[in-house]
Each structure stands twice: as C-alpha cells, then as structure tokens.
Design a protein around this nucleic acid. Structure first.
Lengths: 296, 296
DNA sequence: ATGTCTTACGGAAGACGTAATAATA
DNA sequence: TATTATTACGTCTTCCGTAAGACAT
C-alpha cells in the first residue's frame, strides 16, 4: 500500500468517478484506473464495481474505506503538527522568489516587515527554477516563496498578490513579429514556443504556455528550459520564441532579443505561497506586511 | 510522506541504528540515511540526533513516532483484513512453482489434497521467473508458491519444506571442470558465474550465487537470467558457468552441458510460501497435505 | 583502526501521460 | 454519438546499491 495508491483509493471512494478523481489529484484518468487495478490485484478482490456509467464501492471496498480513512487523515495531521512544531522559534524566515522583478517587490515587503518586527530575521535565500517553482517549499528549503500563480496544490496556501504583470513575446530581432507594435495570442499559431521543463504541473504549463490559440490552432512545444536566461539564449539562436512577463523587457534587455506586448495574454500574478503544514506566526506577519503595500 | 519513508522512520525509531534498520528492511544503510535526511528536510527539523556512536530521537521525532505508529499499524491491518476477506469463498487455490522438480513434488501434494478435500479445486497456474520468484504472491496472481528458500520477507509465511536438493555446477562439455567427479565451492574462485536477474533480493542471490568462496576469493558475476533454459544457452555459448540444483541434471540434460556435483554447496530447500495477509483455510489445508508426505 | 553515518554517482524499476480501444446509454 | 473506463507503449523520475568519504571512539 503505497501513498499514491491509498490516496487514489480514498479519492475514488469519495468521487465514485475516475475522471473527477484524476482531476482532483492532478493525474490522468488512465493512471487512476491502473493504480486501482493494481491495488485490487494485490488485495485479491474488486474494490469497486464499475460500468461505463457508474462506479460503486464493493462490500470489501466500503469496509476498507471506513477502516483506513481516519488513520490516513491522522497520519497526515501528525506530519503537519511535526512540521509546525519544527518552525516555532526558527531563527530566520527563509524567502525564495521567481524572477528578478519579484525580487524587487520582495525587498519592499521585507522593508515593512523589518520595521514592524525588528527582532525577526529574514533571509532571501534562492531564486527558484521555472520548472519545480514550489519544490523548495516542499523540500523545506524555504518558508515562503514569491512565485507565479496559478498554484493549485492542496498542501500549499496562496497568499497576497504582490504584482500583476502583462505579457510580452520574446522574439529574435530579425523575426517577422519583431517589427510589430503588439501581437495577440492568435499570432502564436503553428509557431514553436519555448516552455518550462517538465516537473512543472500541467495546469501551470497550460496557463503560461498554452498549447492552443484561443481559436484552437496548435502552438508547438519547443525546447524546455529552467531559467529565463536559458530561454533567451535559445531564442537568440533562432530555436524558438517565448511568452514572458513584462518584467523581462526591463531586466533582460539584449540587442538580439525584442519584446512585443501580447494584448490578450492572461495576466501573470505573482503571490506569496507557503506550505500549509509549515504556516507560522512569522509567515503570517510577512504576508500581512505584503498586504499593507500599495497595490501595483 | 511516502510509505518507504514512514517505514524507514518507524524502524529507525525502534532500532536507533542505521545499519540494523537497513538490514531489517533489506536496504542499504546509505539509503536509510538519505530517506531520513529527506524526511527531515521536509519536516523542517531533525527527527534524530546522531553521532557516529549513538542515534536518539529528538523531541519532535519522539512525538511524531508516538503519533503515527498506531495509525500506520492500523492501516496495515485493514489491508490484511481486506485481503483475507477477499479470499474466503474463492473458487480455486492457485499454486505457482519454481523449477520442474518442484512441480513434480507438487503434483503429489495436490493428489493428497484432492483426496482429503474433494470439493476444493486446485489450479497450478504458473512457473515463476528466477528473479522475482515471490512477485506473483505479492501481485495476487497465485495463492501459494512452491519456491526456493531462503525467503525472509515479513509479509510472507514460510511453510513446510517439500524437497531438499544438492548442488551441481553446470559447465560446457569442453570445460576444464567437466572431467571432474565433483568440485568444491573453492573451485569457483575467479570464475564467471551466471546469476538471477536483479529484482531477486540480495540475500537470496548471495545464498544461491555467493560472490566469494569460503576462503574469501572473489567469484565474478556473469550475465543475469530469468530461467534455467536461458542460463544453459549462455553456458553452452561459453559465456559462464552456473550453480544449479541437482534436479537440473535430470530435467535439463543436454549434450553440450555437463553437471558436476558441488560437495560443499549449501543445500537448496524448496518450500511452500504464501502471503500472511491472504492466509486462508484452503492454504492451511494445502500445507497440511504437504506435511503429511514422506520426507525426501 | 574500526565502526559509524553521509555523500556522489550510475543503473533500473515503475509512475506517468498519450493515444488507441472497448463498453454503455 | 458521446461519455466513460481500460489497455498499450514510450518517457522520465527517483529509488536504490556501490563505493568512497568524513567523523568519532
């Protein structure tokens, strides 16, 4: 009984629907099917009766659900308590960020926080990779991350938005779109767009680097990168173009790259995010300092 | 909190010793160290204080242990109950085996079982691969397996021994050792010996295909195989020699292979093995039938 | 010097998504 | 035909052992 099997089983027992279960766990429905099938082979009996129209718990499945659900929850809570206890009396609040503009706003938040709480220390420890932007939170390397929404993870809390940025398209100077005053998403049709490397969740990829235009025409997935710098190198080499935030135009000015505003690009919101299990007084105070800043 | 992390934590909290914990879980101590380190990073605090002389639980570690140990046990028991319930009223007892001689003894056991319980059906379903010889038990594909000891798995029960076999060395007919009346393990020194493919547990490999002679001289690990037939093909091609059981001399007679008895080889015991969680009345009856046979 | 825990690295098991297939209404 | 669950397959993550390193007795 692996964790992912138990969680798939419990979720399916509640949803009684493979597709909804898959969406809730951010997995594909095929995977849920295989995970449950494997569990049933090991148990030696079906846990669900399914037709293509209905899914129901069997007697053994119902009993198993009642037996393990409270214990599974209790274990989760025990880890949360341990994580919470671990962070009381921690010396410094460790903050991570994604992208240079976020870092700039962050220093203003830190200023307010330091004024209000002179005794408490803050350390900006690291810039996150584009892929796995919340990994450092999960690994316990930072306490708060200033990163790009959407973040739809049940174990993470989304705090105040620090910054809302427009979208630009980064293209090589010689590119056909480089002359334009602005573009729309439809202009991406059939082009090769650089995107974040794979550990990034699918919903995040799709939000920031859509695979289709609003009219439904395909956008080709180009090479995957971990940093904006790497993306720019590839763009300069003519290997693709990339959707970026307006801050790129200020912080990554280069002669071989042109940034063209995307009129209908979904806005990029940057917000504070932290682990629900690790939430502490210091984190709440830091979030409060962020909320007190004038909106930009 | 993955299953392997929880189990490593609980075992280490009991043993307070990395090497012993590793042995208990059939893992390397380096792996235990990394698993615990990762867990501590995620929790955000050490769970153990360790010097190279002593390992102790921290306050947070102690609390976590007390919190999750009973729930972890409860979940394990719930799965065992489900597995047990799944197998009452099952139509046929599915039996697997390893090696043709085992299959032969098995048919005598089945004869006795059928005489005693005419209403109960038995199906010999499959021959197991040399690697992963108990995998079918864990996957729920068979109920009982007649296989080679040692089996040191906490979730499996070792039943009565069906057969004890001596050891032979399988060598190509032209081989220097082919002329010998018999050999000793020391003759394997510096030779290349074919062994079972990798999913087989390390203790099983070491028992059947030792990596050193009694005097400590190395025995080289040759190619890995899944079946005796595959091993013989490789031996015939001159790619190595293999330690086998005496039954091979009867069931796999070939002109290009010679079997030479190994005087001091550890005996190969074949026994019934089944899953503790799936133990049923039928399985106990089958084991009783095996015990009633005259020893060979 | 020995026993202990940790770190670095290459290989392999399996979790995962995609896409084709089957079944039901 | 539309919606659902299952199966087949190739990719990629990460778990794992090996072996070298660091530290203490």
């Amino acid at each position: 009984m692996e964790r992912h099997e138990i969680e798939a089983f419990l979720a399916l027992a509640q949803e009684l629907h493979f597709r909804r279960t898959a969406e809730r766990l951010h997995l594909s429905s095929g995977r849920i099917s295989q995970t449950i099938a494997k569990l049933e082979r090991r148990i030696g009996s079906p846990l669900f009766e399914r037709s293509s129209r209905q899914v129901r718990l069997t007697e053994i499945g119902r009993r198993l659900y009642d037996d393990i659900a409270p214990h599974h929850r209790a274990i989760g809570e025990a880890f949360a308590r341990a994580a919470s206890a671990a962070h009381v009396g921690r010396d410094a609040l460790r903050v991570g960020f994604l992208g240079p503009a976020t870092g700039a706003v962050l220093s203003r938040v830190i200023g307010v926080y330091r004024d209000r709480h002179p005794g408490l220390e803050v350390r900006v420890t690291m810039e996150a990779p584009l892929s796995n932007h919340v990994g450092a939170l999960r690994e316990g390397e930072v306490d708060v991350m200033a990163t790009m929404l959407p973040v739809e993870e049940p174990d993470l809390v989304t705090g105040p938005v620090l910054l809302r940025e427009g979208r630009v398209l980064a293209v090589p100077s010689g590119h056909r779109l480089a002359e334009r005053e602005h573009v729309v998403l439809e202009d991406l049709a059939d082009r090769t767009v650089i995107h974040a490397a794979s550990p990034a969740p699918a919903y995040w990829q799709e939000y920031h680097h859509p695979s289709r235009t609003p009219a439904g025409r395909p956008i080709h997935r180009g090479p995957a990168v971990d940093t904006v710098q790497a993306a720019l190198t590839l763009i300069g080499a003519g290997l693709g173009i990339a959707v970026a935030t307006a801050q790129a135009g200020q912080y990554f000015r280069r002669p071989d790259i042109v940034y063209v505003p995307i009129l209908d690009g979904a806005p990029a919101d940057f917000a504070l995010v932290w682990s629900a299990a690790h939430e502490s007084e210091q984190i709440r105070a830091f979030a409060a300092a962020a909320r007190s800043l004038p909106a930009r």
